[in-house]
Write a protein that binds this DNA or RNA. Structure first.
Lengths: 238, 238
DNA sequence: CGAGCAGTTGATTCGTATCAACCTTGGTGG
DNA sequence: CCACCAAGGTTGATACGAATCAACTGCTCG
């Protein structure tokens, strides 16, 4: 946690916001925060809401305050691949580009802190620290993408499903470091399938396998408890 | 091409270098170029040479002058995934991090312009433009990675092989915009397989299929001519 | 109560991996 | 000069894992 001597200098809405610590707003001084704060808006959206359409210019950026956003790519014939999941307090949007090559859609209920493109660009122009934060997030996303390429290209269905549960377990709780033992899966089976490059049937089968093997407990199809983290790790191919 | 009025101000070695135009050195003014130039070294390596070991601190960065570098990830049991290919004049290395999560290995003969970590970091500290270039390359690599996730997760073996040929055709010639019609494949079959998440046998089979379909001509197992670009495009799933 | 969506389970098909044989090329040494 | 060998690549037969097709359950909502 950061020590904020002049807490009163920063916008009320920002005070409890994760983005000010781990997110991009951590690069801003109180003055910049106030300036940006004046142009932000809150938004809460339902699961399934399209946040960024691939190839269509987006007028605004956002920080994720809570919830999970899926980044998707679509083939002309309708096949879909989820190319990334984003959690609070990730920055959402494509800097330095009118439009994004990927689409973004709320997987769960998502709360956003939005601001216009120009608001971000104004600050980037005079604050290298902000670009540095954005750069680091891009590098993190790149690492994540490459990790997942390993999963998509080399792993078996069983390993993919195990890897997915571990990925969620690491990220569902933005406050917590390390792995959560119990959580709700923020995606439906069709999304999981699109993320793993499998079908919903195969995903379902391997969930039941993990359950029958006593590695995870699954209630109500959404809530998971990892009962044997080591075994799940081993099942993911490490 | 850029107009360089004071061509004599910049180091001899940099004058004909692609990195000064499309690469990261384009962000540097003549003074910075001279300063960096004093600390650079040339290196030419054989195919198969390990350039960056995953997880091991690297003491230097490099620009690729020619050749192709493959970025690899390894699983504990030996399975390998190639998570990216880099061409001239790409920057090679992981900024702001001691070590990289991926390994880098020369796929073909590779010429590099190397410089110590500290040389780059010194310039980044006072030149936001350089970080901006690095940031843009990271974003480009991220787009590439996500494109390839689509390929790995959703496409059939036939589509993967076609996509691979199109990828090469777009990148083998760094000077040329658009697609090359004829080129040498800088990877052996085993590399291609690791890149596509297939086996060498499957890759080989689909090469012969494309050849028999009259879409490409293959001589000496390495040299390819794309005879029907449209058909190859269609075969890749667009 | 019925419709529709999300998810599970089973039977079958199909695509790719696996295993194995073989071909080609380039380098080495008798 | 040729026999030999190893590495890279192709081709064929078979096995296996995931996709597909299909039936069914449970749940929510009108």
């Amino acid at each position: 946690m950061r020590l904020d001597i002049h807490n009163s200098d920063i916008p009320v809405l920002c005070r409890a916001c994760e983005a000010r610590h781990k997110g991009i707003c951590g690069a801003l001084d109180p003055g910049q925060l106030v300036r940006l704060g004046r142009r932000t808006g809150r938004r809460e959206v339902e699961p399934g809401t399209e946040l960024i359409a691939a190839g269509i210019p987006a007028e605004s950026y956002a920080n994720i305050l809570s919830g999970v956003v899926k980044l998707t790519k679509l083939m002309p014939d309708g096949r879909q691949q989820i190319v990334g999941l984003q959690f609070a307090p990730d920055f959402l949007g494509r800097p330095f580009s009118e439009s994004s090559e990927v689409g973004a859609e709320a997987a769960s209920t998502v709360r956003l802190c939005t601001f216009p493109r120009s608001a971000l660009e104004d600050i980037v122009r005079c604050s290298p620290a902000l670009e540095h934060r954005l750069h680091r997030q891009a590098l993190r996303e790149l690492d994540d993408a490459r990790d997942w390429m390993m999963t998509l290209g080399q792993k078996s269905a069983a390993e993919k499903v195990a890897s997915f549960l571990l990925l969620l377990s690491r990220h569902v709780d933005p406050l917590k470091e390390g792995y959560s033992q119990e959580f709700d899966i923020p995606l439906k089976r069709a999304d999981i399938a699109d993320f793993l490059g499998l079908t919903i049937e195969t995903v379902s089968r391997h969930f039941t396998r993990l359950r029958k093997a006593g590695i995870v407990a699954i209630e109500t199809n959404r809530h998971v408890t990892i009962t044997d983290h080591g075994a799940l790790m081993a099942a993911s191919g490490l």
